[in-house]
Design a protein around this nucleic acid. Structure first.
Length: 422
RNA sequence: GGAGAGGUGGCCGAGCGGUUGAAGGCGCAGACCUGGAAAGUCUGUAUACUCCUAAAGGGUAUCAAGGGUUCGAAUCCCUUCCUCUCCGCCA
């Protein structure tokens, strides 16, 4: 949610910022609805003041005078009711328009789509194989790690079963993330996997992206759905709360599977676990003061890079252009891992700063001691990490001539092996 | 699924048609007191929207949510949601 006050006072600034991510922006309906709402409100409140004053003094009057006041107030009450209905209608329209507006990209985020994404840095080198390298599908089949056929039997296309060393490697990865984030002072959280509409709205995924999640029972605000990312749950943790200034920033992480419809075919390029309906992810979230959020963002990017480097995977860090950031976000960096068989980098993590956009949707504030005023928080989120692309990357980047795969050192103890062999 | 109890400010807890934004307590902040602290005393301590160029200062709303009765509702009526207790069922 954008600041209506900013639109009221400087619509042009907002329009210019939004043009970085939208083809056209028309804020006039917002401005005029807002004006109408306030005019009606002023009118209604003046009548209420009159009514309240009359009611307070009515006891002191004599019978006849009371009757006259009763009659007049009855009429005023009816007028108030009519005007309030108009206020409510204007408010509903306004909030629908406001809910549809995406966040303003940060100053330094460039306009346009993917083509304007910029590589910030690369780490590591593309592995060179002195033999015919296999793809991850072949590797996981040969090593008995992933059972795609039976996954489809159980859940349909886009599901798989981790087996044996595959399950152990997956679990070791998740546990490695958990340990890393605990050490960095993040608070471990296991949220429900079924969420209500308000969570989707606060995160900024509803109403626009309702088709991308698995909807369960209920309609309207009673809608429940399977979480598409732990962000959707964690971001609502402090919804409608006023946090204490000295406990900020608050840092959380959660492990959950992520459930996504991913409607449509995947094409030959995205077979296997590159794009599934259910994948595992550990998610970082921070609630910060505005002046802390830039540093929090860098810290989170560092957290992801640290994990990638400890795993020894070649990756690159990419700064997204405005249109490629999701609607709630002012700034997003992706971490993309090299997948040799695809000859491309695939996203394994997205770190984003929503500024106060989600905080406004979910009324998340803190009391600033210096001024005694409540201010909106900044919210940040980052995957650290999603395993569904990391797993293939590990298999492919660390495969050996004999068909085995070297387990990254940091995972060896919990996998229980240095190497996965046939 | 059945039966009952209940949802009041940061928290606990009064109030059950009219100067009640809401007693009292706790917590928190400030002042006094103290060598320093504790205790004690005093003062202050909700949020949102809105009017005003701004500050100052007004106004409106909010006692789970929505609707109704009334000149007037935290208080009466209806609906919904949530929490708790007991029973049933169950991985």
């Amino acid at each position: 949610m954008l600041d209506i006050n900013l639109i009221r006072t400087d619509a042009e600034k907002v329009r210019k910022a939004l043009l970085k991510r939208m083809d056209s922006v028309d804020l006039d309906p917002v401005v005029s609805l807002d004006r109408r709402r306030r005019e009606l409100l002023t009118e209604s409140e003046a009548l209420k003041m009159k009514k309240n004053a009359a009611s307070a003094g009515v006891k002191k009057l004599d019978k006849d005078a009371q009757q006259a006041v009763f009659a007049e107030m009855k009429e005023i009450a009816a007028r108030i009711k009519a005007i309030d209905a108009e206020v409510a209608a204007a408010e509903a329209q306004l909030s629908e328009l406001m809910a549809g507006l995406p966040n303003m990209p940060a100053e330094d985020v460039v306009a346009g789509g993917k083509e304007n994404n910029a590589v910030v840095r690369e780490w590591g080198k593309r592995p060179e194989f002195g033999f015919t390298a296999k793809g991850h599908l072949e590797l996981s089949k040969d090593l008995g790690l992933i059972d795609y056929e039976r996954g489809a039997k159980l859940g349909g296309a886009g599901f798989w079963v981790y087996r044996d060393m595959g399950a152990r490697l997956e679990w070791a990865l998740l546990n490695f993330f958990v340990q890393t984030h605990l050490a960095a002072g993040y608070s471990f959280t296991l949220p429900p996997h079924i969420l209500n509409y308000e969570c989707g709205y606060t995160a900024g995924q509803f109403p626009k992206f309702k088709d991308d999640v698995f909807l369960l029972a209920g309609t309207g605000d009673k809608t429940q759905f399977l979480l598409p990312t732990a962000e959707t749950a964690l971001i609502s943790l402090h919804r409608d709360e006023i946090l204490k200034e000295d406990e900020l920033p608050r840092k959380y992480f959660a492990y959950t599977p992520c459930y996504r419809k991913e409607a449509g075919g995947y094409g030959a390029n995205e077979r296997g676990m590159i794009r599934g309906h259910q994948f595992n992810k550990v998610e970082l979230i921070q609630f910060a003061k505005p002046e802390q959020s830039a540093a929090a963002f860098d810290e989170m990017v560092g957290q992801v890079e640290g994990v990638m480097q400890k795993l020894g995977l070649h990756y690159r860090l990419v700064k997204l252009a405005a249109q490629d950031c999701s609607a709630s976000m002012a700034r997003t960096y992706d971490i993309e891992v090299w997948i040799p068989s695809m000859k491309t980098y695939k996203e394994v993590s997205s770190v984003s700063n929503a500024h106060d956009y989600q905080a406004r949707r979910g009324a998340m504030r803190f009391k600033r001691a210096a001024t005694g005023k409540n201010e909106f928080l900044h919210t940040l989120n980052g995957s650290c990490l999603a395993t569904s692309r990391l797993f293939p990357a590990i298999l492919e980047q660390f495969q050996q001539a004999d068909g085995s795969v070297l387990v990254p050192e940091v995972l060896r103890a919990s996998v229980g092996a240095d190497r996965i062999t046939i």
